[in-house]
C-alpha cells in the first residue's frame, strides 16, 4: 500500500521571500513614516516612537536599504510564482459570485481553512497585496528617479501624483497587514506553516 502523499507545503522560496519581504516591508513602512513626517501630505504626523531612522537622513538610509531587500525577495517570489505555476494553481482569481459568497461566509467566521487550498477570499487578498506591493515599488522608483525613470513617473501622472500613490500603497499594505495579523491570530497554525512549510499545520 502506497503511503499517503505528504500534505502540500509552502515552498522554501515562498517562505523565504515571505519573511525577508516581511522584515523589509516593516522597515520600509516605519522609515517611510519618518520620511512622511519631514513634509506631511495630510494634516497629521506619525508619532516618532513608531518610526524608524531617528531623523530624515537616517530614515532615507533605512528606506533605500530595505528597498533592495524587498525588491530582491519580491523578484525571487515573482519568478518562482510564475515559473512554477504557483500563481496559476493557487492564486487564480475567483469569480465575483464565488468571492462574495465566500466573503459572506468569512464575515460570519464560517469559512473553512482547508489545508493546501486557498479559499476565494485568501486568493483575492494574497494576489491583491502582491499587486499592491509591486505598485508600491514602482511608485517608489518613480519618485526616487523621476528623471532616469521619467516614463515610469509619467505613467503615474508626475512626481507629485506618484508620491501620493506611493503613500496610498502604504496605507493599503498597512490595512492588509492588520487583517492578515488578525487572521493569523485566529488560525495560528498557519504561522507554523509559513515557518516549517507544512500547510495546515502539524
Amino acid at each position: 500500500m502506497t503511503p499517503l502523499a505528504p500534505p502540500p507545503r509552502h515552498h522554501i522560496v515562498v517562505r523565504l521571500s515571505h519573511w525577508v519581504g516581511a522584515v523589509a516591508m516593516i522597515c520600509l513602512i516605519l522609515s517611510g513614516w519618518q520620511i512622511y513626517n519631514a513634509s506631511p501630505l495630510l494634516p497629521f504626523r506619525i508619532p516618532g516612537a513608531i518610526t524608524l531612522g531617528g531623523w530624515l537622513g537616517g530614515a532615507i538610509a533605512w528606506h533605500l536599504t530595505a528597498m533592495w531587500l524587498l525588491m530582491a525577495s519580491g523578484a525571487m517570489y515573482l519568478a518562482y510564482g510564475f515559473a512554477s505555476g504557483h500563481f496559476r494553481r493557487d492564486l487564480a482569481l475567483p469569480s465575483v459570485g464565488e468571492f462574495t459568497g465566500e466573503m459572506a461566509a468569512a464575515l460570519r467566521l464560517n469559512l473553512p481553512h482547508d489545508a493546501g487550498r486557498y479559499n476565494a477570499v485568501q486568493r483575492v487578498f494574497y494576489a491583491g497585496v502582491v499587486a499592491i506591493a509591486v505598485l508600491a515599488v514602482l511608485t517608489g522608483l518613480a519618485i526616487w528617479k523621476p528623471v532616469q525613470f521619467g516614463p515610469l513617473t509619467a505613467l503615474f501622472g508626475d512626481y507629485d501624483t506618484a508620491r501620493k500613490l506611493h503613500f496610498t500603497m502604504m496605507v493599503l499594505i498597512v490595512g492588509f497587514l492588520l487583517i492578515h495579523l488578525v487572521l493569523v491570530a485566529i488560525v495560528p497554525r498557519t504561522l507554523l506553516g509559513m515557518i516549517t512549510g507544512k500547510r495546515g499545520g502539524v
Binding site: 516605519l30 516612537a49 518610526t51 531612522g53 531617528g54 531623523w55 530614515a59
Partner: peptide, 21 residues
C-alpha cells in the same frame, strides 16, 4: 556625522533584529 540607525523605540523590531538600534 550623525547616526543613521536612529533612536528606534519599537521593542518588536529590536527583538526581531537582536540589536540595540
Amino acid at each position: 556625522r550623525r547616526g543613521l540607525a536612529g533612536g528606534l523605540s519599537l521593542g518588536a523590531l529590536t527583538l526581531l533584529t537582536g540589536c540595540d538600534l
